[in-house]
Amino acid sequence: NQASVVANQLIPINTALTLVMMRSEVVTPVGIPAEDIPRLVSMQVSRAVPLGTTLMPDMVKGYA
């Protein structure tokens, strides 16, 4: 089972991601792979992401 990136806190719209905002977790459906966490740092979210939400490619500007 592949771990995905999950929000560790509420991430407001247009916030630049930092390591403390993200954790890896095995979830369904699968989201952005956990190994991409270093690449996500400083990228902005395109919408508010609630705590515990799996990050999907369309939620991060410039990821897809």
Rank of each mutant, 00 (worst) to 15 (best):
P29N: 06
Y63N: 04
A48C: 09
V41L: 08
V6W: 01
T54S: 04
T18A: 06
S42L: 07
T28K: 04
A7M: 04
E35D: 10
G62N: 09
V5G: 00
A48W: 06
P12S: 09
K61A: 12
P38N: 13
G52R: 04
P29C: 04
R39Y: 14
N14C: 11
A16K: 09
V5D: 00
D58Q: 11
A16W: 07
E35F: 08
S24F: 11
A7F: 02
G62I: 03
P50G: 10
V6M: 04
A16Q: 13
V60R: 00
G52M: 04
L10P: 13
Q9A: 14
P38F: 15
I13V: 10
K61H: 13
A16F: 05
M56A: 08
A7T: 15
N8F: 04
A3G: 14
T53D: 10
V49L: 10
D36Q: 12
R47F: 05
G62R: 06
R47H: 15
T18F: 03
A48Y: 07
G52A: 07
M43S: 11
N8K: 13
N14W: 07
N8M: 09
T54I: 10
Q44D: 04
N1P: 15
M22T: 02
V30G: 07
E35A: 10
V6D: 00
I32H: 00
Y63R: 03
N8D: 14
P50D: 15
L17M: 13
T28I: 05
Q44P: 11
V41E: 04
V49T: 08
M22W: 02
A7Q: 01
S4I: 02
P57F: 06
S42H: 07
L51Y: 13
G62C: 11
G31H: 01
V60N: 02
L55Q: 01
R47C: 04
M56T: 13
L51G: 14
Q44F: 10
T18L: 07
R47I: 15
V60H: 01
T18E: 13
L17E: 02
N1F: 15
Q9I: 15
I37H: 03
T15F: 07
T28Q: 09
V49G: 01
N1S: 14
L19E: 09
T28N: 11
V30C: 13
R39M: 12
M43H: 10
M59G: 04
T15N: 04
V20I: 08
A64S: 14
V6A: 03
Q44N: 07
V6L: 14
M56C: 08
I13Q: 11
R23Y: 09
L19K: 12
A7G: 03
S42A: 12
D58A: 10
E35G: 07
T18M: 06
M59Y: 08
R39A: 08
L10T: 13
L40Q: 00
V26A: 13
T18N: 05
N14V: 03
L51N: 14
A7H: 02
T28V: 10
A3L: 14
V6T: 08
P38W: 05
P12K: 07
D36H: 14
Q2D: 15
T28D: 15
P38L: 10
M59N: 07
T15R: 05
V27N: 03
Q44W: 06
M21P: 02
P38D: 07
V60Y: 00
P33R: 10
V60M: 04
V45F: 00
M22R: 00
S46E: 15
